[in-house]
């Protein structure tokens, strides 16, 4: 797979010429990774869409690098001409998470940004449709942030079937709730504990 990367190198060269500070790396066939500064993302997207004919936006992703106090935004683009995918990455400040929207380039960006806004709390400036996406009346931290503890949350908010987490005898609880005597399953099937 590592042979014949001419096309990829050519595109990488073009990007390097246009964006001096960008780290461009041909990852493998059909994959180019570009690391960009925060302020270069929009010029780069414009460049990719208009000059390199990257018409298709596959993906916008976000990674929480809590150690570095940074969010990483990942834009994955595809050109139907060269079929080479560009993975453009940038890091933004985690405390004051704001980023200009890319809604004007691709309409479906709105949805991605809505989701990232909801799950990470990044505010996309210029996108006026950052309403609830998958969650409803969410009051806690944005759940995909790494400092959000999902186990704790679920134990606090939901009823857990007793016996689920610390393997205690389920039967009593079940009997209490349903009024039915249950056989001792542990003995019958000799399961763990």
């Amino acid at each position: 797979m590592q042979n014949n990367l001419e096309l990829e190198n050519k595109i990488a060269e073009k990007i390097k010429i246009a964006f001096q500070t960008a780290e461009v790396q041909v990852q493998r066939k059909q994959r180019i990774k570009v690391n960009l500064n925060e302020d270069l993302v929009h010029p780069f997207l414009t460049f990719a869409k208009n000059t390199l004919s990257y018409k298709h936006l596959s993906h916008i992703s976000c990674v929480d690098w809590i150690e570095d106090n940074q969010f990483e935004l990942v834009y994955i683009l595809l050109s139907y001409d060269s079929l080479v995918q560009i993975i453009a990455k940038t890091r933004i400040n985690r405390e004051k998470a704001e980023f200009p929207t890319a809604r004007n380039y691709w309409p479906q960006v709105e949805t991605y940004e809505r989701e990232i806004h909801e799950l990470y709390g990044i505010n996309f400036v210029g996108n006026d449709h950052l309403v609830d996406f998958v969650l409803e009346d969410w009051e806690d931290l944005p759940p995909m942030r790494r400092d959000f503890d999902t186990v704790k949350y679920s134990q606090e908010h939901f009823f857990n079937r007793p016996g689920r987490e610390d393997a205690q005898d389920v039967r009593k609880t079940v009997t209490k709730h349903s009024g039915e005597e249950l056989p001792d399953l542990a003995k019958i099937y000799s399961v763990r504990n």
């Binding site: 999902t150 679920s154 939901f158 009823f159 857990n160 079937r161 689920r164």
Partner: peptide
């Protein structure tokens, strides 16, 4: 629906339906 199944630690699914 019985005990949360594989989503026992998910923040968005209920674990015990009969409640």
């Amino acid at each position: 629906t019985i005990n949360g199944g594989m989503y026992w630690d998910s923040y968005n699914t209920i674990k015990l339906l009969d409640k």
